[in-house]
Write a protein that binds this DNA or RNA. Structure first.
Lengths: 345, 345
DNA sequence: ATGAAAGCGCTAACAG
DNA sequence: CTGTTAGCGCTTTCAT
């Protein structure tokens, strides 16, 4: 929709009676250009309201100055924090951001990847969808030398660069905390163990149990899709168990909250009958009653770190293929849902 | 970061012994091209792995095929729903999306607008920041004929196109509902009345009071920044009032939830002592106890509508300067926080 | 230190 | 129905 023609470097060149190439170099602060010439160029550019045409530049330079991001969902506190972090760094570095949403669907993720590939992004930051099994759709990126960096939802067996939290540790400290509160029969509510984050939290959970000589059996593991219903159903299952569990480590604050609601509605007291630990430190933790003990980890920082590493790689400052794993700090936030008044230790 | 050269229309043309322009036209499904030629072109394009170079096309066509979005914040259910709606429509229409976040800051919003302007977006969709007073930073868009469309947080006095809900009606039905429950002294917790959404909800609130001959006084109006603290402070203020209010219409579910928490901690019963209605229908409504009565409105639909209108305008199908206001449906969702057992009517 | 000229890949007159 | 040609705005050799 062109209305008025834009100011180009030729306009500046004509105004100054110099060549367009000189203007181009001047604008890029090339050392080849004299100080006074440069100054004149910048002044006239500002005066005339010049702004580089990215599309011409990108066409010429054969690179898009754009970074693609594929997230597994958009309506999540964690994901939007990460995006905010990525946005901060990329904007500052002069890159555009193209955000795609796989909505937890494998086929959508494949489509997103293809689309971003053909948009010729310079790099890609990805959190895998729930359904994703293989990483084949990222092959064309790596083959073409386009760096792909994963965060949170990753595949660890591949030799890709990933930004994560120590999910094993998180699972461990969450469970250990429950054990310290005197819990003996601890349920774990989580999602498909094919996804790294859940597999590792589970591993940490098992490790804590084992270390404290607590038995585990299959019935204590409840796998769902982490929607509202999962919370309700988990509560139902827990109440049916005999003996009833006395603790639960639930890998989602929202699910944990629904679970607490349901338990309470059925006369089960939290934390006294069942102590509960969630995951994420969503704002909801402060609303639910009792307030929810959870694992906190810094989404925005993860985004910043991912973006920074990617951009440094693009600028040749570092090489991410040498970096395999970046682990970000995480910690237990203790609130009321896990604090038993009477330790049955 | 060029590695292997991309396939261009010239490669296809050479392969087929035809002109590049024919390939270009064929790929665009131009009616000028013969059926069999077209078929051959498409086949070879697929076979050779051709994909249009957007940057060349955009340079040539002088339009970016990109839509800019400025949101007032990112970590909000409503906003991400809207973004999802916008994304759906724009992706389908072949537009890229550039998302900027003003973080409720006027200066950031100005910077975002400038940046998107220079990225030559074809159109802009905006929800104003909290601080924004004037719309001057959008002038360069309108001067250049670039359509700007506002949603939710808008300025209504200007002649811009806006997508909103009927906030007056929402304020009215929320308040009316409380009145129907027997409430006589209804507090209104909201944010700066300079922002349209809050001003209008307030107007609806006043209208409902007036219609039912209920008195209003300044003390019943609590203005805050709608953070966690606002909820706590509002509860404190309400408890200090004499007589205490018996109802509250709070323009944020999160704030309402914090308020309920605080009231309950201080021995005030909800809804029996004070009935409460929130706004937004966030997932949190189902977690808080009692569950929160609220106003529901369709973020995703609003996004779709905004995007669709913008794109239709860009395609010359409609002209948004003729459309002033698009109002989207909204409704009261009654839950427990507002249902008094004993109507003191 | 500056200029001339070519070309990135595509589209759109214009010509046939 | 198809081909020829010019040019979008920029960067970058290659000259000077």
């Amino acid at each position: 929709m062109k209305k008025t023609r834009e100011v180009t470097i030729y306009d500046i060149a004509k105004e100054l009676n110099i060549a367009a190439s000189t203007v181009s170099r001047g604008l890029q602060d090339s050392p080849e250009i004299g100080k006074k010439t440069k100054k004149k160029i910048f002044e006239t550019a500002t005066k005339m309201g010049y702004h580089v045409n990215q599309y011409a530049r990108r066409l010429r330079q054969q690179q898009s100055n754009t970074i693609g991001v594929i997230v597994h969902r958009l309506n999540s506190n964690f994901v939007t924090s990460v995006l905010a972090g990525i946005e901060k760094v990329t904007t500052q570095a002069g890159y555009d951001l193209l955000i795609a949403n796989s909505s937890e669907s494998h086929s959508q993720e494949v489509a997103n990847a293809k689309s971003l590939f053909h948009k010729r992004v310079d790099g890609l930051i990805v959190s895998l969808s729930f359904e994703t099994i293989d990483l084949d759709h990222f092959n064309e990126f790596t083959e073409k030398g386009i760096p792909v960096l994963f965060f949170d939802r990753v595949e660890q067996d591949k030799h890709s660069t990933i930004v994560i939290i120590d999910n094993i540790k998180c699972g461990y400290i969450a469970t250990k905390h429950l054990i310290d509160q005197g819990c003996k029969r601890i349920v774990h509510v989580t999602s498909s163990l094919n996804r790294n984050v859940y597999a590792q939290r589970y591993k940490g959970y098992r490790k804590a149990l084992a270390e404290h000589k607590l038995s585990f059996n299959e019935n204590l593991l409840i796998v769902g899709n982490l929607t509202e219903d999962t919370g309700v159903e988990a509560a139902m299952q827990m109440m049916k168990m005999n003996p009833m569990p006395d603790g639960a480590f639930i890998t989602s604050d929202f699910v944990a909250s629904m679970c607490i609601r349901t338990l309470k509605e059925n006369g089960v007291s939290v934390p006294d009958d069942i102590a509960i630990v969630g995951f994420n430190n969503d704002p909801i933790c402060k609303i639910v009653e009792p307030t929810l003990t959870t694992i906190n980890y810094p989404g925005e920082d993860m985004g910043e770190i991912a973006a920074r590493n990617l951009i440094n790689h693009l600028n040749g400052l570092t090489n991410i293929s040498q970096t395999n794993t970046i682990t970000v700090r995480s910690e237990l936030v203790v609130r009321k849902s896990s604090l038993k008044k009477t330790k049955t230790n």
